[in-house]
């Protein structure tokens, strides 16, 4: 190829391949993208939860975007434990202050960051959550402390609409 001078025909071949490739990609993309979340799935973006009946030390689980969300009203003891942990001891260092703006309320996706199981309440070596699937232990702030999960349980976007209602999403 290199020792031969490019001809008119070589240019035509290259141009044809290029246009063909772009055309093929343009046709393939809709076929791939149709598998992404559709408009009706995206529309279910937020949910409001009444938390007035929740006592300290209790957790409720609500469904948001098909995923469980834990809402825990933490006891003072749990908050103290969560806030006294040194950052060096954490696998995925995050301050409890950043995870629970209002320390009494911990809101997070109840989804283990290993392979997506729902961890169990008040279980595990750190008295937070324990995932029965592959043995990940989370502390009272939902942070990963032991086991195969790589990250802390995710805190979704949420806000208190009023004193008794949390809006997730």
């Amino acid at each position: 190829m290199s020792d031969k001078k490019p001809e008119r025909r070589d240019f035509l071949f290259t141009a044809t391949y290029a246009v063909g490739a772009v055309g093929a990609a343009a046709v393939v993309w809709p076929l791939v993208d149709q598998m992404n979340p559709d408009a009706s799935v995206k529309a279910l973006a937020s949910t409001e939860v009444d938390v007035s009946s929740l006592k300290p030390g209790n957790t409720i689980t609500v469904l948001w975007r098909g995923k469980p969300v834990f809402i825990r009203r933490r006891t003072q003891e749990e908050i103290d434990v969560a806030r006294s942990v040194k950052m060096e001891d954490l696998i995925h260092p995050e301050k409890d202050e950043d995870r629970a703006k209002n320390p009494e309320w911990l809101v997070m996706l109840g989804v283990c960051t290993h392979l997506g199981c729902v961890p169990l309440n008040d279980k595990g070596d750190y008295d937070g959550w324990f995932c029965p699937c592959h043995g990940s232990h989370y502390d009272t702030s939902g942070r990963i402390r032991k086991g195969p999960a790589p990250w802390n349980m995710e805190v979704p976007k949420y806000e208190f609409v009023n004193a008794n209602t949390i809006k997730i999403g």
């Binding site: 791939v32 559709d38 098909g66 995923k67």
Partner: peptide, 11 residues
């Protein structure tokens, strides 16, 4: 993309 949503569901 595999799920077609944010969890395993109808899609």
């Amino acid at each position: 993309w595999l799920w077609g949503g944010y969890s395993v569901d109808n899609p």
